[in-house]
Design a protein around this nucleic acid. Structure first.
Lengths: 242, 242
DNA sequence: CGCTATTTTGAACACCGTCAATCGCAGTGG
DNA sequence: CCACTGCGATTGACGGTGTTCAAAATAGCG
């Protein structure tokens, strides 16, 4: 059934708050298994109500919503350590879908045990609320980005945010990291057309702010990129892991 | 110090989940007072860390973020029953500001008691997480709206959502309701210019889908408006009140 | 060597932003 | 009573950012 939480590959990253041995023990009870899925596979569907909720262990995915006419809005990326299915857990209803972009490994929890978590582990419950509030924070920022920035600023903002997150996850290697999404994915996240996204990425490349090609992102100078993206906020401190 | 929770003017609305007498009692302990503020007054500031968190009892307000160059993104409206300061409560940091648009009455809670809530009232803690997840749901929807809809669809969407919410709060009167915001507020919420917002509102008015003037919104047929706004989702069931 | 998915490029057009002026209204003070 | 002021709503003209349509490279894959 995969690794025990005490040997969790990502728990030790400095990005995540340390856990007491008591908490680790509870998590080992809460965890019911591991799931490996293939690129393109759906994880949760909008409107659905699955008995299982997850934490991403490895790989990358997408959260998105579909409009009836087929337009797609990518809400956020799913990266290791991200909790998947909070809405299903507390509201019995997903309002967006989640799918794997690369192959992924997921830590599986039993939704019906969530109430038990609130009853017996108030600190873990607090952490869960922290994660929800953090998601709200991110979406607020994204909303401000879509609403107020032009395409060039917007893509610089997005790539800078992604870079910082991958950096905190120690998934960068020098000035390069793997970013296995398609331009269409980023376009749908930014509310831009594919064509315009492509041309604007070319400008960022020409400016040597961010070079994204063949699934690899290279950022020569993250601070310059952040400046281009008007990234004022977000020191990105440590956070809980569920 | 204002009304006791047992006499709370909004708790009885069908929009809100019923509370056990035990919960009401806890809330009366949790509540430390009431606050009345004037139009335009700030409630919470981005970056701030106040000792107090609130629930709106009456009046209307705005959540917003400012970019360094003065551009403003309105995140959401604040209406009666809305919880204010969840981020400050769990993350010690507001990432947006909140201000009153009309005069407002707020129910005041002591932030330091929040941990006590998690420890002794798991159901209330669950409700708080529910509210956070709901906020995430709304912001995801808003993101999809800004990213995918054109100005006409977008404003129809926004006015329809507002109408449905006010309807659930029993603040509508026939086909009319009070909506005391400026066009600039809605423009900043939609990421549109004031001029274009004005012209698009004129089109909605000409189409007799939504007539908004002098602080009054009239919606002859909410379902037609929702259709114009591509509102597929959101039955808007009952929710907890903190 | 086709086949498909993705990226790239070009051209025409439209939605929306900016600039600028006007109008209505409420408040203020001469 | 009537300028004067300020705020918000409204309208017109013009230009630019971003969309749509279309086609051509490019790359992986059976």
């Amino acid at each position: 059934m995969g690794v025990k939480c005490r040997n969790c590959p990502i728990r030790k990253l400095p990005l995540f708050d340390p856990m007491t041995s008591d908490e680790v023990e509870f998590m080992e009870h809460f965890k019911v298994g591991e799931l490996s899925i293939s690129p393109g596979a759906p994880i949760l569907s909008e409107g659905g109500n699955t008995p299982q909720i997850y934490t991403a262990l490895s790989g990358m995915g997408l959260r998105y919503k579909l409009l009836e006419d087929g337009r797609r809005q990518v809400i956020s990326l799913v990266l290791p350590g991200d909790f998947i299915g909070l809405q299903a857990g507390v509201m019995n209803q997903m309002t967006h879908s989640v799918e794997a972009t690369t192959s992924m490994r997921l830590c599986v929890f039993d939704r019906s045990e969530l109430w038990n978590l609130f009853r017996t582990q108030p600190e873990r419950a607090f952490d869960l609320t922290w994660l929800a509030a953090n998601e709200e924070r991110f979406l607020g920022e994204a909303l401000a980005a879509l609403g107020q920035r032009d395409a060039y600023e917007l893509l610089a903002w997005a790539l800078a945010r992604i870079w910082r997150k991958l950096e905190a996850l120690q998934m960068t290697n020098g000035d390069t990291t793997s970013l296995p999404y398609r331009q269409q994915d980023l376009a749908d996240a930014m509310g831009l057309s594919l064509v315009h996204t492509n041309k604007t990425l070319a400008k960022l490349r020409a400016a040597r702010l961010a070079i994204w090609a063949d699934g690899k992102l290279t950022v020569p100078d993250i601070e310059e990129l952040e400046e281009a993206g008007l990234c004022r906020d977000t020191p990105l401190g440590s956070r809980p892991l569920i």
